[in-house]
Computed example of a mutant assay.
Amino acid sequence: MPRPIAIAALAFLLASPPALAGEAEIRAAQTVIQNQIEAFLADDAARAYSFAAPNIKRYFPTQQSFMAMVENGYMPVRRPQSHAFGKSEEMSPTRIVQQVLLVGPDGKTYEAVYTLEMQGDGNWLITGVSMRASNALST
């Protein structure tokens, strides 16, 4: 009878490293988002722009064009009163989707869904953000 327990324990141990690796990757991606939000709040355009992936930089080749886009379409991300990480999903070893719940400068709640990809140098960068008003109540 102890044999099935030992097999189950071994299966759990073998399954644990990938789950831990996924959690570490998600934390790394969340750190990138956190750092970009902090850069936005500090009006540090260069630092905020540094977290954008090459696909974003092709559309917005200067810090000024990038910041203008953020200010015109993503003010809750640019100037959040508060934010919290929601659901996340590792789509592949190099792609993560992360939900961020925000209270915008207008006091309304928003949901931002970030996509991030690991670059060739091992760093995570933001490849896109979609945002919508949230039905959640802000406190």
Rank of each mutant, 00 (worst) to 15 (best):
P2L: 09
P2H: 08
P4I: 01
A6K: 11
A8D: 07
A9E: 02
L10G: 06
A11G: 03
A11Y: 00
A11V: 02
F12L: 15
P17D: 02
P18S: 04
A19W: 07
L20N: 02
L20C: 01
L20P: 04
A21G: 00
G22N: 14
G22Q: 11
E23M: 02
A24K: 02
E25M: 10
E25S: 14
E25G: 12
R27Y: 10
A28H: 04
Q30M: 09
T31Q: 12
I33F: 08
I33L: 09
Q34E: 07
A42Y: 05
A42D: 10
A42V: 05
D44Y: 02
D44C: 04
D44M: 06
D44T: 02
A45S: 07
A46N: 07
A48K: 00
Y49R: 08
S50M: 08
F51A: 07
A52G: 01
A53P: 12
N55C: 10
N55L: 13
I56E: 00
I56T: 00
K57N: 01
R58Q: 12
Y59D: 00
F60A: 07
P61H: 04
S65G: 08
M67D: 06
A68D: 15
N72Y: 04
N72L: 13
N72P: 00
Y74T: 01
M75Q: 14
R78S: 07
Q81N: 14
Q81D: 13
Q81S: 12
H83W: 15
H83K: 01
A84H: 15
F85Y: 13
K87T: 09
S88M: 11
M91Y: 03
S92N: 11
S92F: 07
P93K: 03
T94L: 02
T94S: 11
R95T: 14
V97H: 11
Q98W: 10
Q99T: 06
Q99V: 06
P105S: 12
K108R: 15
T109C: 15
T109I: 02
V113S: 05
V113G: 00
Y114C: 10
Y114K: 12
Y114P: 12
T115D: 03
T115Y: 00
E117G: 06
M118Y: 01
Q119Y: 07
Q119T: 08
G122T: 10
W124A: 04
I126Q: 01
T127H: 05
T127I: 06
T127P: 10
G128L: 11
S130I: 12
M131S: 06
R132W: 08
A133C: 03
S134I: 05
A136E: 14
L137K: 13
S138M: 09
